[in-house]
């Protein structure tokens, strides 16, 4: 079903923000340099592909230690945490997740220098049918 009751959205979003706050540990996250690539509309809520990308190659000087991925409309917002290293080459990785309904997916990256970046993206989970 596409349309969620408001209370559960609020609850999921609240839990997600608690996880973000915990991950940031008091730091603030900047925008840009981190992207989340997902379908705008999910084909199948049980397997929604996602790709996380931090701009620039991973080097010993600069790499994303951890990228936390959260889905704020699921009963539990946690999806995964990716860990890159200088051997990763790029800072890009993909997986597939479950989304219970239309919601925001959040990624927060912690770089090896202690800085943070964040991005939020909407994925629509629809009932389907109809077309041209």
């Amino acid at each position: 079903a596409a349309i969620a009751g408001l209370p559960s959205i609020a609850l999921g979003a609240e839990k997600a923000e608690m996880r973000v706050a915990e991950f940031l540990g008091g730091a603030t996250a900047s925008e840009g340099g981190l992207s989340l690539e997902m379908p705008e509309i999910a084909e199948n809520g049980n397997t929604v592909p996602l790709t996380v990308r931090v701009d620039g190659e991973a080097t010993a000087d600069r790499y994303a230690e951890s990228v936390l991925i959260l889905a704020d409309g699921n009963p539990e917002p946690g999806v995964a945490t990716f860990h890159f290293t200088p051997l990763s080459g790029t800072q890009e990785a993909s997986t597939r997740m479950r989304l219970a309904k239309t919601q925001n997916v959040i990624a927060v990256a912690k770089m090896n220098d202690g800085s943070f970046m964040r991005t939020d993206n909407l994925v629509k989970v629809t009932i389907g049918g109809c077309g041209g």
């Binding site: 049980n46 397997t47 929604v48 790709t51 991973a58 889905a71 699921n74 539990e76 917002p77 946690g78 999806v79 995964a80 945490t81 990716f82 860990h83 890159f84 290293t85 200088p86 051997l87 990763s88 080459g89 790029t90 890009e92 990785a93 993909s94 997986t95 597939r96 997740m97 479950r98 989304l99």
Partner: peptide
């Protein structure tokens, strides 16, 4: 890992789909 050194890791939570899929890259020295 590559020759014992960490390349990429992932902590998974219950929202990861059945039959977990991961795609990532590695630099091969």
């Amino acid at each position: 890992t590559f020759n014992g050194e960490r390349v990429f890791g992932c902590d998974m939570e219950p929202a990861i789909s059945a039959n977990p899929y991961l795609q990532f890259t590695a630099r091969v020295p």
